[in-house]
Every structure is written in structure tokens, then in C-alpha cells.
Design a protein around this nucleic acid. Sequence first.
DNA 1: GACCTGCTGCGGGCTG
Length: 934
Amino acid sequence: MHKLHCKLQSLIKEKGWDDLTTVQKETFTPIIEGKNVLVVAPTGYGKTEAALLPIFNIMLRNETKPVAVLYITPLKALINDITLRIEWWTSKLGFSVSRKHGEVPQKEKSLRLKKVPHILVTTPEGLEIDLDWASKFRENYRNIKWIIIDEVHELVNSKRGAQLSVLLERLKDFTNYDFQRIGLSATIGNEQKVANLIFGSSNRESKIVKVEGARDFEVKILKVKQKEGEDLWGSTAKLVNQLVERPTLLFTNSRFSTERLYEELERSKLKNIFIHHSSISKEEKIRVENNLREGKADVVICTRTLELGIHVGDIKKVIMYRPPPTVSSFLQRLGRSGHTINRVSKGEIVCLYDYDILEAISLYELAKAGIVEPPKSMPYMDVVAREIIGITLQYGEINVEKLYNLITKSSYYKGLKFDKFLSLVKYMIQNGLLKKENYKVKIGKTFFKIWRFDKDNKITWMKDFSEFFSFISTDETFNLRYENKTIGEIDAVYVYKHLRNNDIIRISGKLWRIVNIDINKMQVNVAPATSGNGEIPIWKGENISKSSLITKQIEKVLHNIDDYLYGDDSLIDEESKNALNKLVEFYRIHQLPLPNTRTIYIENENDEIVYATLINEKIANTLSHALLYLATKKYSLNVSARSSIYGFSIKGVDKDLLQDLINLDEKQLKSLLIKSVKRSPLFFATLKEIQYSFGKINKVSSEDKIILEEALKQTVNKYFSIKGTMKYVKMIKEGKIRIININGLSPLGKAVLSHSPIKPWISDLSIRIYQALKGGAYTVEELSDMLGISKKTLELRLKKMRKPSSKYRTCNFIDVDTHETRWVLMEDLKEIAESDDYYNSFNPINLDESYVMVMRAYQSEGATESVFRVKDLVKNPEEFLKRIPYDEILELKLKDPNDSLVASISPKYYFVKKSIARFLVLNAISYIQNLKFG
DNA sequence: GACCTGCTGCGGGCTG
């Protein structure tokens, strides 16, 4: 080992450290030797110092010009934390450090120009700003010798990771120096891939330093026992109460559970309980963190916010309320306790349902075996587009080959073809985001249209200039409006997935009925409702997806279930054993194989067909969307579907639609899967998120191929699996996956039903009109307002929808009170006509009159006239029907041989179906009589 | 009952 500089040795003594940690020792030499190093170890193993000590060692022996070290970390809170930690060293070594993020006061930020720091701590976005925009400070970057990337596992899977990788290549080109790259990561699968992603085009030798430590932990899995007269929350709180050893971190998977558990625990004898999640104010979060560090907290109930980064002091125990969604998250949460290296992490998983126990055991086994989710990278094209802009901002003008060379140095974009890159640049020029001048590109006008410096009078699509530097999209929300007042906000994806007209929701204790959803104005109009079980739309539409490792592991756990039930290890408690015993018993009694990935159970419950099996969540999601697509296309719009790692389901059709999927050939299947993804709100949301990066301001049309293709790729990558689903269906076809019909509901089927259903979201105009009209009668003006579509377009479409060939047929009547034409769905006309709302429009005043009904047949030459008494029409509808010889009437109107006025004022109805003709005739009479006598 | 993350630089001119 290289010798530690004497100054560092004495500082280590001053710190009170006996020795360096294993990570610090193992990292020292490779860094001194100039290698790129990826350090993999749990939080709290001293990774920051592991990277910095050897760098200080070199800095002390050589003259170093600032900025020598760039320290990148994904969180502002971490920047603050780490800057203080580094300052302890630098102040004593004669170096300086400064930090830069959005909340650092302007005064502090501007200091770095006067006194350039040796070490700069910032975010990927901070580096983006400096390279693109900070023309003066940027010059100091030319001296950079080391880059440390902290929390690499957090970055690599996202657009931020792709962005950073391009930034590093830009920096390398700018400095003209192959600086040393050091990555610090929590436990992650496939370290080599992670290393490749961050080392990029560097020619240095590289080394991965991995410290196992994560495997020394104690885990106990417990199931909540629900006591009589107590709800699950109360029982959970009681159990948690028994488990707490101060200080305890109690992790949950939702902000809602955090609040709910707090409420329950507050009633217990526990004192000093705190809450920590993203909706808690910044000040409060800092207060909680301080209490935790100072040992003043008994329990902190938190979401993932406390999984990442910051130092929280000595934690005695970690309790996870319901299993976390990934092994990586499980390890991170667990690693929050027993920090000081030699102490073992202690954790407990509190389960609510039998499948929670299976997930918990699986997480434990995977973690013990050292199997963790691998990184997942993809070449996001919106990142490329923005980096092109960034580079152009940096240089003012630049030629396309140079741009291409810079970007494809990044490991994320190695495979990007020049053709594709060129068509992207052309498209950006076409949208005015770039302009071409003498074989070079410059910034175009559209850039300043989208990312604005002036903060006032912004149109909704305009963005603040600062947003240009970040790829974290703020969630879109719908305003909830009643009588021109905004009464709340709902996450857009939640609206797309779950809310439809006439649904009842509950906000701040009141019930509201959805009147309509205006996606152009991003408004949900509501009216007070008096009854119904309102759902509470508080959570974000995004769901946390479960690792596919868990699915496969559950299969293994079930295979060896007896070891868990009868073995003597103390992993799971008695209550859990009972629950698992019951689960297993169901299958044994019915002589069915235990749940596995090769058997699908088809089950039935309340008009819902459940396909229960152990399945990759993305495949389940793809299948459920495909079923929704088929169902809405062939049968009904009133359907919903669910998906999870326990299977999928469809409600509202009594056909086995999976069979329809299986019967398709490969090409048909693929095209159907793509169509169903494209119709999902997730695709829609992705489209909206990325379109501005390409300079597209208006609605994306079929000509914007680049955006459409990219949105599809990103949506699939995140939520679906086309290839996986193709393979899955093929396996069913080949009999490699068995299908078994069972009566009733299996435990697995119950698990499927415990996930909330999604409803189809339709962008097709006719279907949207259908959804808007459903249950009501509206004028073209009202509909135009509701849907944000021009009156002319709307009227044309409404007329077209009257025809028998239309799937969702409409018709119109005259509102006798206002003399306006109102449109309704043909299927709703009866109900509307019989309702009190339009009483005057369908109830003639004088029953003693007689009229002649004039009809022309649809699609034939026929025409008929028929005399009738109003009284007969009202009293004897059956008889009246017999007077209509056509199933479909092309034109329907009234006349009176004794009064020519009638023919001239009679409304005319087109494309009338026989079954509803009576109501329209009633409407015509009501209108005529209203004019005559009214 | 469904998570989390980030976000203008520079320098001129004014006030007390």
C-alpha cells in the first residue's frame, strides 16, 4: 500500500478513527495508481473518504490548481452534508470546497468566482448549468483531475444518468484531459455494467472495489394479527409498538400509510414520533433529521426519502411496513441500522397479507444470496436533443459531426447511428429549436419560446429557463373545479387511469361527482354528490413497480415452502406460518399445483375474469392493457383491468379474451400490443413530457415520427414488455404455460383483486364524445367547452355519429324550455326523456290533437305517412311502434293536414332507430304545442 | 391504498 501522507495520518487520529475501513483501504491504492474505480458498499462505510483520502494524498504532494475535484451527488441535502464533511478535511489541509445547487444563496454561489474552490460539490444539473451557461466559471473546469460520482445506483437507471454521462464526455473534451472517474454505489447487480456506464470513453485502467457487508443482517418477518373490534391499522400500530427499540426507522411504501400509522402510534404510549416524506416541508424534514441524529426520536415513520443518502445517526432498528418493492431498496432500508460497520443490521418486515410474507421471504433470500437488480439503461433521445442544445449554448455554434462525436462517446449512446442522429438534428431545425448556418448549427427561436426568462404571463406550455437543465419532470395535475372555483388538484396520471365521468370522489370530506374531464384545459369539473362510495384521489398515479426478481423467488420459496413452515429457523413468526399454511392448504385440498410461473388459473368473481399466476409485472401490465383494448374494441367501454405480479384480470366482459390473444399470429399480436400501449395514458403522459425537448409546442401529430417513436420506446421500457409478452403468449400456445379453470377465487386470485383497477383512456374523438355525453344531454356549445374541440368539428362528428354505422350512436332533440338543440346518446334517450330535467321537452300539453308522422326509410326508396292521436302515443307505446315499418328511419318529421304551419315548424330528425322514434315524436309534439299554445 | 430526485450566470448600477 502507498504511504498515507503524515498530515492525513494525524487528521485520522484527530477524527478518533482507529483505522481506515475496509473500503477505504481497498480503494486507496487503485486511486493512487490513477485507475478509474467503482466502489460498491452499503451507506455508512465511509465511501466519501475512501474516494477523497487518496486524492488528498496526491494533492498534498503535487501542486493542484482549482477546480481539481468535482463531486457529483443527486440530492441537495447530500450536497450540504458532504460539503460540511469535506470542509472538515480541507480546512485543515489548506484546500477549499464549495457547493452549488438551486437553494444555495446567490451570495455564496458568486463567491466561487472570486475564490475558486479545489473541490466543487454539485448535482448533475449543476454541472449542466456550468457547462451550458456559466461562461466564466466554466474556464476553471479546465483543471479538473478527478470526478467523484456519489450514489451511482440512484443515477444510472434514469435520464439523469444518461445526462451525466454525456456531461462527463463534454467535460473531457473541454479539458482535453482524461480525468480519473470514481463512482460510489450502494449494492447493485452487474457492477461491471455500472462501471462501463460511468467510465464512458476514459482510457484509464479500471477497478471495482466491492465490500460485502450487506449480507450480515438479521431479519424477522411478522404478520399483523387483526384483533376483533380493531381495524388493520390499529392492529399494525400495536405490533409496531411492541417492536420499537429507540431509535427506530419505520419505512412504509406510501405517504398515506406514513400519516395513517402516525395517527395510530400517537395514541400509544410511544413518545417522540416523527414523520418524514416528500410532502413534508423542508424545515420540518430538517428538524426531524436533527432530532434523529441527536437521539431525540423514538420512531421516525418515513418513505423512501430516508432511504437515500443523508446521515441519520445511529439507528437501533429498521421496521419495514410491508415489503419494499426491490432487493436494492430492501438492502438500503436495512442498511440504515447498525451503521458503524461491525454492528449487524437489524430489521423486521411487518406483513399484512399472505403474499406480503412471500415477498418478504423472497427479498431476504435474494439479499442473502447477493442477488440485486441490475442497472437498466437506455438511449433516451430527449436527453440527446437537450444535450445538443446544451452544447450549442456552450459553443455558440458547432458542426453536426462534432456534436455526434461528443454524444456518442457516452456509453449510453455508443450505439446511436449517425443517420438517426442527423434526422434528429433536422427535425430540431424544422421545429426551430436549432438553425443551420454554414454547415453549423446555432440556437433557434423556439428555444427561447419554450424556456423563458420572464416569469410573468406564461402560457401553460412555456417553461422557466431553469427547467431546461433538469430531466425530472414535475407531475402534471388536473385542477378540480366547481362553479369556476378550484377546489383541489389531482395527479394527471391518476385522472387518466382511474377517473371517468359520473365517478364519485371524496376530497376534504365531501363527495363530488365528475361532470366531465377536459384534457385540454387540464380540468376536472365536478358537482356536489350526495351518495356513493367516493374514492380518495390523493396518491400519485404512478405505481412503484415490483422487481421481477421477486416473482421468480416467490416461485422458489413456494417450492420449498415446507422448509419455512416446519424448519426451526426464526425467520418468520407463527402468525406468518399460519397464513402460509392456509395458503398452501387451498392448493393441496383442491389438488392444484402451488402458484408458479408456468400455470395460469382462470377464476371468476363478480363479472371479473381473473388470470392468477406468478408473472413479471411488466408482462402482466402489457396483457391487461391488451385485454382492455380488445374489450373496448369488441364489447364495451365500461370495462376495467388489473395487473400485478400475481396475475391480471378484466372486468365487464364475459368472454375469455386471453384466448383471443392466443389465437392471433405473431404479427397481429405485436401490432395489437403496440396499439394498446399507445392508447394507454402512460404513453400520453410520456409524449407530453418529452415533446418540448424536441421543440414541439403544438399537439403531436402522426408526422412527428421521432417523438412518437421515442415516447413508445420510453413508455415500453418503463412500464411494459412487448418482447416478454410475445414470448409469454407463445409459451401458452405451445402448452409450456398451462391454463387451469377453477371455481371461485384462489389466494392468488385474491391478491390480483387487491390491486386497484385501471380504466380505458380513449383519445378517439367519437369515444371521447361518448364519454362526455354519457348520462346527459348537452348543446354543441356546452360540449365544445367540455372537450375543448371547436363547435364546427364537434357538430360534424355528432351528426356522423347518428348514423346506424356508428358504434356510439347519438341523436338530438329540442329543449322546449330554451329552444336549444341538445345531443344525447341514443342509448340514454329513454332515460333522459323520462327524467324530470327535460319534462317539458317530452310531455305534450294537449293529448287530444292528431298529427301525421312522415317517415323516409334508410337505405331504401320507401316513405310512409301515418296518422296518430297524441293520446295513443302516450298511452299505448306498443301500438305506436307498429306504425313504423322501418327499423331505421332516414328522416322523421310531423305535419298536420289541417294546419300547414305544423309542417313548417316541425323539427326534423335524421337517422332514427325505430326503438327511440317515439321519444323524438313526443319531443316534436311538445315543441310544436309549446309554440302554438305556450 | 401507490416512492423519490432538481431547477440562470454575470456584472452593472443602485441604496444607505
